[in-house]
């Protein structure tokens, strides 16, 4: 039986002006009916913070691609979101098969997805490159046989700042 733990949300007001938000969501491998739930929560949170719509779209497209990858390939995973006054950091980590060659996986069209995943409208080998296109900064660590950790960083006030932080 699969048990889904509801996300934990903590909101703090810092120095009267800047809002800080932290939340975590479980991602259940293989459960395509719920794929996208965590990203949907991210979108709702960013909307309440009045984040620019174009930044929200780029953020959630990137997190959704990552979430679908966890559902498609891993046993289970977690999305951890931290938002402060200047950046959105989303870490998606899973216990799964890992990626043998991240550089190869980044190439558009490279895919190891099952036919079930393709029937859901994914698995065309475009997820990672689309994540890179939408994220201000994308970092992927993977250990074959153990799992994958994806870090997506978004700047709330311009891309360059986040890129230079890396």
């Amino acid at each position: 039986m699969r048990i889904v733990v509801p996300g934990r949300v903590e909101t703090h007001i810092l120095s009267g002006m800047t809002e800080r938000m932290h939340f975590e969501h479980n991602i259940v491998g293989g459960d395509f009916t719920r794929a996208g739930y965590a990203s949907s929560q991210v979108k709702k949170a960013l909307k309440t913070l009045d984040v620019d719509m174009a930044i929200i779209k780029r953020t959630v497209v990137a997190t959704y691609e990552a979430e679908v990858n966890v559902v498609a390939h891993a046993c289970n995973g977690m999305m951890i979101v931290d938002i402060d006054g200047s950046t959105i950091q989303v870490v998606i980590q899973d216990e799964g098969p890992g990626i043998e060659d991240v550089e190869q996986a980044m190439v558009e069209g490279f895919s190891t997805a099952s036919s079930e995943v393709r029937e859901m409208g994914f698995g065309a080998g475009m997820g990672l490159s689309n994540m890179k296109k939408n994220a201000d900064s994308l970092h992927i660590e993977s250990e074959p046989g153990k799992g994958t950790k994806v870090e997506i960083l978004m700047a709330l006030d311009g891309r360059e700042e986040v890129r230079s932080k890396k």
Binding site: G36, V60, G121
Partner: peptide, 11 residues
Amino acid sequence: NMQTIRTAEMS
């Protein structure tokens, strides 16, 4: 399927 709606939501 559900991902049709999720994709629209994210996009």
